[in-house]
Design a protein around this nucleic acid. Structure first.
Length: 899
DNA sequence: CACTCCCGCCAATTA
DNA sequence: TAATTGGCGGGAGTG
């Protein structure tokens, strides 16, 4: 904006601030630097006073409106592009020329598009809700401002509010540190306590706002001794920042924000009207509430409310009182704060803030449903019977669009829940699969995906669109990031793309049901922080590179694509395993494996050797799985040998690519045969095991991980940046705790060939995981075998035979354990073989969101353009990224599809 | 017309 | 002194 503005502005206003601008305009080079957002940048259009230029000027002079329009046009362009991608930059320039208004009108971003709330969502989307503790994300105001295409002032508005909740802290000039929501509960708890002290009384009495008003009016002064309050607030989360100071007195926005939140926390109704809040907040000024002052406060409250809404903590509502309808906000965030808050806090029914956030704009509209789901989730979580609960949830859920969104929304906050979700998903899939793929949308998606990768996915996915925000709301940068990287991936399906959506993916899928898991295929999820994966026989080729470079990605993606088709066929595993994975890799498996290992560093899992050792399995209760275990072993063996290569490569993609994971499978159903077969043949050696990949989320993704059926989309796999060796393993559910205790290891040695996965046709589902690291302990891990569900193939067996004992595949004790664990869930135990792939973790690849970002951005911009994507859907940045990826995928797909 | 709230001037603070 | 922060309120967009 700055950039464009300036130029435009100049005419308008002399521009006080920056003479520079003008000068620049003229001189300037059009390009804008990403780096310094600031002003100038844009093309100087004017300088040369082209005929048009003059014209423009005249026009502007003549009519403010026109000028305005143009200005806006320009301003927004960047944003629009990013979001929608429809108009290429080039257009901008062109457009600019004609002063004519016409076009630009269409483009002209409506005021809403520039809202602080939307901006905040974009901002939040850049960072994970629950960043890994390890990585510190620093936020550069300039950078963010330029990226988001807004002036810095606006970023302050957001950051100040976030800072009041300790989601960020200021570390230095222009530098903020992103903390995420880890401490949100704590902060809220503190605010609640502080609020009770100050306002508690009032609130108590409060029946209605009116009362409150009175009381507040009266007491404000008394109760709230401001000065102190502030400190409290600040302190609330000393940890983050030193409370250094209160340097300025004010920070009024920060303080106001905290007080505003306090009002909600103290209020029984959880509803606070703006006017009351304004009155209360005026505090000091209190009495003389001059109107102007009041108005100003209200303006500020809107600013704050927009941010809080984006965070999913409140939503706008209206209260009707005698006087009439008044604007108000309702707290939809957590109400109770467990001690830890961090982790579990979700319990309270209303509590999960995150979801809301994700919902973002949507939240407002959909609240109720979401809340329920959440609660369900929580409940399940709490109960420790995630599975059932989850199922119920899922089952109960109708698949409405909203729900989908919600699903998407899933937040990181509760990893556990995620886990659960995943598990559920798995089940669902299985069930569904068994039953059939019925699942509606999800299924459709899958199918579509399968068939043609392209189409459906989108539709299903809410994603692309802006709506996206709502949909995607994921704050997490992750996706975007991923996408960027991923794009190369060929995710065949939209699915993958979607999956990416933040954390939710799993959830969403889950909820929806279908998508998430592959029906037949078995998969493993480990809670381990890092994660891992599994894939049914895939080959691994992978490299493991943690972060592939773009180039790499591309290559891989290509590979992946190639591979993908084949992969599709999961179900048929029996036939062949099509899997195959990957054609690509033929190369030396062993070598690769090794390589993989390297790459794997991050891997959490290692499969040592044989799984057979079931004995170890102790971990949980599970006992029952011994059989399963055996299976595993067998499977594992399979993997080892030859196949590995293929898959791996694909995996290599980067963690980023995780998203990609998702999808791949899609195709199977429809097309399974043809393409796949080829592959399968190649892979033939490999058995068909279904494979899943679990990808750990990279930093951005933080919260989720996905599992993919390996077979499905190789591409997907490829996406996964990590490559891990894959193992075939039966699915197991393991309590996270168990997992935690051990590190999972995958023996690199095994790689299984991706390919085949005939069996499950579904593959599609990618399930997400959550990062477990933290969760892990608490959460159970689960692994499910699809196999169980789908009898179809018992590819596994075949596999086993093949390589029964490969050292390579070892199941680590973990596995065994897991097996035992698995019992829990049920079906899981069954044990189809599954291949696990290791993915690298994020850790290894220290991708910081930032690093990622850039790519994303580029991706965005380019993607659309390159694609020529008609679609407008991608508006949001985050979405964009996603979109981009999706787009890319499409492209890829399309390419693949040809055959 | 009321509600929202964008925009950006400009002062307070910092570096 | 320059740059960063952020208070503040005019006034525009929406409904």
């Amino acid at each position: 904006e700055n950039i464009y503005d300036r130029s435009r502005m100049a005419p308008k206003t002399p521009i006080k601030n920056e003479p520079i601008d003008l000068s620049k305009q003229k001189g300037c080079t059009p390009e804008r630097n990403p780096i310094t957002p600031v002003k100038i940048i844009d093309r100087p259009q004017p300088d040369p006073w082209t005929p048009t230029t003059n014209l423009k000027i005249l026009v502007s002079a003549a009519s403010p409106d026109m000028r305005d329009r143009e200005k806006k046009k320009e301003l927004f362009r960047p944003i629009e592009n990013s979001e929608q991608g429809d108009t290429p930059d080039s257009l901008q320039y062109d457009i600019v020329d004609d002063s004519t208004v016409d076009e630009f009108e269409k483009q002209r971003p409506s005021r809403k598009q520039k809202s602080l709330g939307l901006l905040c969502q974009k901002f939040l989307a850049r960072y994970p809700n629950y960043p890994l503790s390890t990585e510190k994300t620093t936020i550069s105001l300039d950078e963010v401002a330029s990226i988001l295409g807004v002036e810095r002032r606006r970023i302050y508005d957001i950051v100040n509010v976030l800072e009041s909740l300790h989601l960020v802290s200021r570390v230095a000039k222009n530098q903020y540190c992103w903390h995420g929501r880890h401490n949100l509960s704590q902060t809220l708890k503190m605010l609640q306590e502080a609020g009770e002290l100050q306002y508690g009384e009032l609130m108590t009495s409060q029946h209605k706002e009116q009362d409150l008003e009175y009381k507040f009016g009266e007491r404000k002064k008394e109760i709230i001794p401001d000065s102190q309050d502030r400190p409290l607030l600040d302190f609330s989360e000393p940890d983050c920042i030193s409370a250094s100071a209160n340097s300025r007195k004010d920070k009024s926005l920060r303080i106001m924000s905290q007080k505003f939140v306090m009002l909600f926390l103290v209020s029984k109704t959880k509803i606070v009207t703006l006017d009351i809040a304004a009155k209360i907040l005026i505090e000091e000024t209190q009495d003389t509430v001059d109107h102007s002052k009041f108005k100003t406060k209200v303006r500020r409250l809107y600013d704050i409310a927009n941010v809080l809404t984006s965070l999913g903590l409140i939503k706008k509502v209206h209260v009707t009182e005698e006087r009439g309808r008044k604007p108000a906000f309702k707290w939809i965030g957590p109400v109770e704060f467990p001690e830890k808050t961090d982790e579990l806090r979700g319990h309270s029914p209303t509590s999960d803030p995150l979801p809301d956030t994700q919902r973002g704009g949507c939240a407002q509209y959909q609240t109720s449903a979401t809340g329920k789901q959440r609660s369900a989730r929580h409940a399940s979580f709490n109960s420790a019977q995630p599975c059932e609960a989850t199922r119920r949830k899922i089952s109960s859920e109708p698949n409405s669009p909203h729900q989908e969104r919600q699903a998407c929304i899933v937040n990181s906050d509760e990893n556990c829940s995620k886990m659960i979700n995943l598990a559920d998903v798995c089940r669902h899939k299985i069930e569904e699969d068994t039953g059939n793929k019925a699942c509606d949308t999800a299924e459709t998606i899958l199918h579509s995906a399968k068939n043609s990768n392209i189409t459906l996915p989108f539709s299903l996915l809410p994603v692309p669109g802006d709506s996206d925000f709502c949909v995607n709301p994921l704050p997490q940068a992750v996706f975007p990031v991923v996408q960027a990287d991923v794009p190369s991936l060929s995710l065949p399906n939209g699915i993958s793309s979607q999956a990416p959506h933040p954390s939710t993916p799993a959830a969403s899928k889950t909820e929806n049901g279908k998508p998430a898991l592959v029906p037949n295929q078995p998969f493993l999820c480990f809670p381990s922080s890092s994660l891992f994966m599994l894939c049914g026989g895939l080959q691994e080729n992978n490299l493991g590179e943690p972060l592939p470079t773009a180039g790499d990605l591309g290559n891989r993606s290509a590979e992946a694509q190639a591979a993908i088709p084949p992969t599709v066929c999961q179900k048929r595993s029996s036939h062949k395993c099509s899997s195959p994975s990957a054609p690509v890799d033929d190369e030396e498996p062993a070598a690769k494996k090794q390589t993989l290992e390297h790459s794997d560093l991050p891997l959490s899992l290692v499969l040592p050797k044989k799984p057979s050792e079931s004995p170890k399995t102790e971990s949980s209760p599970g006992s029952g799985c011994s059989a399963a275990v055996h299976l595993e072993t067998n499977h594992l063996d399979l993997a080892s040998p030859a196949a590995p290569e293929v898959a791996n490569k694909e995996f290599t993609k980067s963690s980023d690519s995780q998203e990609q994971e998702k999808q791949s499978q899609n195709k199977d159903p429809d097309e399974p045969p043809p393409g796949n077969e080829h592959i399968s043949k190649e892979n033939a050696n490999q058995p068909f095991q279904p494979q899943y990949l679990y990808v750990q989320p990279t930093a951005g993704l933080s919260s989720f991980n996905f599992l993919f059926s390996a077979n499905q989309a190789p591409g997907a796999i490829s996406l996964a940046a990590n490559q891990l060796p894959s193992l075939s393993v039966p699915c197991v559910m393991v309590p996270s705790a168990a997992l935690t205790s051990f590190p999972l290891v995958c023996s690199p040695s095994f790689t299984s060939p991706l390919s085949p996965v005939p069996d499950g046709s579904f593959s599609a589902a990618a399930s997400t995981n959550f990062s477990m690291s933290s969760l892990a302990s608490s959460t159970p891990v689960f692994i499910s075998t699809t196999a169980v569900v789908t009898p179809k193939v018992s590819p596994a067996p075949s596999v086993d035979p093949q390589q029964p004992a490969h050292p390579a595949l070892h199941l680590s004790p973990v596995l065994t354990r897991s097996c035992s664990a698995v019992k829990l869930d049920s079906p899981v135990c069954v044990g189809h073989p599954v291949t696990l792939l290791k993915l690298q973790q994020p850790s290894s690849a220290p991708l910081t969101p930032k690093s990622i970002r850039p790519a994303h951005h580029e991706a965005f911009f380019k993607t659309p353009g390159s694609l020529g994507d008609p679609v407008a859907w991608k508006k949001n940045e985050g979405n964009q990224t996603r979109n981009a990826s999706s787009v890319q995928r499409r492209l890829e797909i399309s390419s693949t599809s040809p055959d």
